[in-house]
């Protein structure tokens, strides 16, 4: 079963399409990084998958169920960008409410995690720092024992140590429970360690949707003479090229360096930035990988 399947998914607000023509097939058990500029539609896409927004066009399923359906809500946990919580309650009350609202609730996990974080259950949720609220929301999302986690910028309010700790905790849950995770993030450097699947969203459309391994295996960073770039277009599939004086740096989808060019493996950061710079370039999950311009 696929964690996420969308066909032609689109959502329009008044006159603009926040997401459009999204075809996505993310296998289960992946940690998917959702990357894109602000306003690219990441939040909209995640909200549709979470059942918080209804699509204008197309279809989507999460773990085989319709988003927002009872079956989906039983197996999918979501944490919205706004970190929704009952801010007038105390932490204990918030946990009690969550317990009341869910059939499956791992109270031990929640309590252990919060005490490991040093969060007092008598604290008022509204008075917690942004980082602590994010930790609380994340803890509750995981205490529901989901099979799929949808997180919209979960690390945004966290300090570097907390980011490391949260990612480590998430990865442990992935290792032990086979959890699938989709999270959007602006910090690309973290993604190579953590993500196994990459989705790049740009202006509401999917630019890249593939496993990290396949992407890193099929792309190379080429360095060579700036005046050789034009010729290079005939030899390899170029994603993006940067020229500076005499030297050029090219991100190419190829297995070997053409003569006159030096190749090295590309990093996730270079790959993502390269595609973001060229909105027309695509890696779509059709049979084989194809770059369409």
């Amino acid at each position: 079963m696929n964690a996420i399947e969308t066909r032609g998914l689109g959502k329009r607000y008044r006159r603009t399409w926040a997401v459009r023509g999204c075809d996505l097939t993310v296998p289960a058990g992946q940690v998917t990084a959702l990357v894109g500029p602000n306003g690219a539609g990441k939040t909209t896409l995640l909200r549709i998958l979470a059942g918080l927004a209804t699509p204008t066009a197309g279809t989507a399923t999460v773990l085989g169920a319709a988003p927002g359906s009872r079956q989906a809500r039983a197996t999918v946990s979501a944490m919205d960008q706004t970190v929704p919580l009952y801010r007038h309650l105390r932490v204990a009350g918030q946990l009690a409410a969550a317990r009341a609202l869910n059939d499956q609730w791992d109270a031990d996990l929640a309590i252990q995690r919060l005490s490991a974080l040093g969060m007092a259950t008598s604290a008022r949720v509204g008075k917690l720092s942004a980082g602590q609220q994010a930790q609380l929301a994340l803890t509750m999302a995981l205490a529901r024992r989901p099979r799929l986690l949808l997180l919209d910028e979960p690390l945004a309010s966290l300090d570097p140590l907390a980011r490391q700790d949260v990612l480590g905790w998430l990865m442990t849950r992935v290792a032990e429970d086979g959890l699938s995770v989709v999270f959007s993030s602006h910090v690309i450097a973290e993604l190579e360690r953590v993500a196994s699947y990459l989705v790049v969203l740009s202006a509401g459309r999917i630019q890249v949707a593939a496993t990290v391994d396949s992407l890193l295996d099929t792309h190379l960073a080429l360095t060579g003479p700036a005046d050789g770039v034009d010729d290079l277009y005939d030899q390899v599939e170029i994603v993006t090229a940067q020229r500076a004086g005499r030297q050029a740096l090219v991100l190419a989808r190829t297995g070997a360096a053409p003569p006159g060019w030096a190749a090295r493996p590309v990093t996730m950061e270079e790959l993502v930035l390269g595609y973001l710079r060229e909105p027309a370039a695509r890696v779509v999950p059709e049979p084989g990988l194809e770059i369409a311009r």
Binding site: V31, Q164, D165, L167, G168, W169, L170, M171, T172, V174, A175, E176, E190, R193, V194, A195, S196
Partner: peptide, 15 residues
């Protein structure tokens, strides 16, 4: 152990 490495380095267990 894989689960120890994933926790401390915050790295995907598949890696």
């Amino acid at each position: 152990r894989i689960k120890d490495v994933t926790r401390t380095l915050a790295v995907n267990p598949d890696t």
